[in-house]
Simulated assay, not measured.
Amino acid sequence: MLTALNNPRPAMLAVFMLLGGSVAAAASPTITVSWRDKPPYHYLDNGVPKGFLLERTQAIFAAAGIATRLAPEPQKRIWANFSHGATNYCSFSWYRLPEREAVGQYTLPISIDPPHSVLVSGAALARVKTHATLAALLADQELTLGVVDGVSYGPELDAMIAHSANQMMRRTVDTTSMMRMLSVGRASIMLVDREDWEYVHRHEPILQSTTRLDFPDMPPGLKRYIVCSRDISPLVMDKINQAITATGGAVRSSHGTEEERKAHQRP
């Protein structure tokens, strides 16, 4: 205290830096942060935004000192916004794909998915269980694969789907709607995010007729990122990356206990 009184310069410098930081934060434009409906990652519950990855993203921007405005939007609109040069715009929970890197800039990863599973309709379960691997399953011409159009399942799975011998049922719907279609037999199988399935399975009794199976040759889960428009400055991107590191880096999604995971493994 005596040092500060006798030599006021350090104290004055600290106040100046604090005020300067506040002015800079106030001068920074609010960033629109868009997100698609994907429970339990990010969704609306009676109009209230919820979800563990939405909360994580809010914590990251708060730690970075960046003001945001949440904007739930359909997936295709989000990527159209990036393609058409939206400004002061970010979105989160995306895989890293070359075509997306062409229109936006990626942060460090914020989470890591578990591997996908296969969701099976009641009518197709016996036939599906004759296949020991995902490769064999996708070679079965008698099965119908439900695919959510416009969604990436990751580079490896996208390529496997493109070369699959299954009959295809592509629909521009959300994942929950595709699960409902499968539960009434409109498709035999679909690839499913484990977090998605466990959330919907708890909330939709109709899905009790479906079975989730895991296959040994399923590609590993992918990392998810925040993507921002090209006009976001390197300084702001660096602040976001520092906040990601400070708040835990790429956290792993939790998808149940070890006993629950074993229950879904192939025999």
Rank of each mutant, 00 (worst) to 15 (best):
S91R: 03
S254G: 08
A14M: 07
T210F: 10
Y199D: 06
I31A: 00
V200C: 02
S28A: 10
Y95P: 00
I110F: 06
P205Y: 12
S209R: 15
T245M: 03
A11F: 09
R266S: 07
T257F: 03
L19Y: 07
M178P: 02
N46F: 08
A62H: 14
A14C: 01
P10V: 05
Y106Q: 04
A86Q: 09
D214G: 06
H42G: 04
R100D: 01
N166K: 12
V103C: 00
R96V: 03
P267M: 02
H116A: 10
I232N: 05
A135M: 08
T245D: 00
S34E: 07
E101N: 13
L235P: 00
E73Q: 15
N166M: 07
I161D: 05
I226V: 13
T87L: 04
L5Q: 09
V48S: 03
A86L: 02
C228V: 05
A80S: 12
A63W: 07
K262E: 08
E195K: 13
R170D: 06
G249T: 00
A136P: 05
Y153Q: 02
S117A: 15
V227S: 02
L125K: 15
A250E: 07
G185Y: 14
S34C: 01
S93E: 11
L119I: 05
A25V: 10
R252D: 08
L222D: 12
R252V: 09
G47R: 11
H163I: 11
E260G: 05
L157K: 08
T144E: 08
H84G: 06
P219L: 04
H84P: 00
Q58D: 02
H84D: 14
A162S: 15
P115E: 13
W35T: 02
S209I: 09
T3W: 14
A123S: 15
A26I: 11
R230G: 04
W79H: 12
D196K: 12
S121C: 06
L143G: 06
N81E: 10
P74N: 13
Q75K: 14
F16M: 11
A162E: 14
H84K: 15
Y106F: 15
M237N: 08
M181N: 13
S28K: 07
T30H: 05
Y95H: 04
Y43I: 02
V118D: 04
R261E: 11
I244H: 01
R36I: 04
L97P: 03
S83I: 03
H255S: 10
E204C: 06
M179Y: 15
V33M: 04
K76N: 15
I31G: 00
S253P: 00
A162K: 15
T211E: 07
H131R: 13
A246C: 00
S93Y: 11
S111H: 09
I244V: 10
L137E: 07
Y41N: 09
S188C: 04
M179I: 03
P39F: 05
L191M: 11
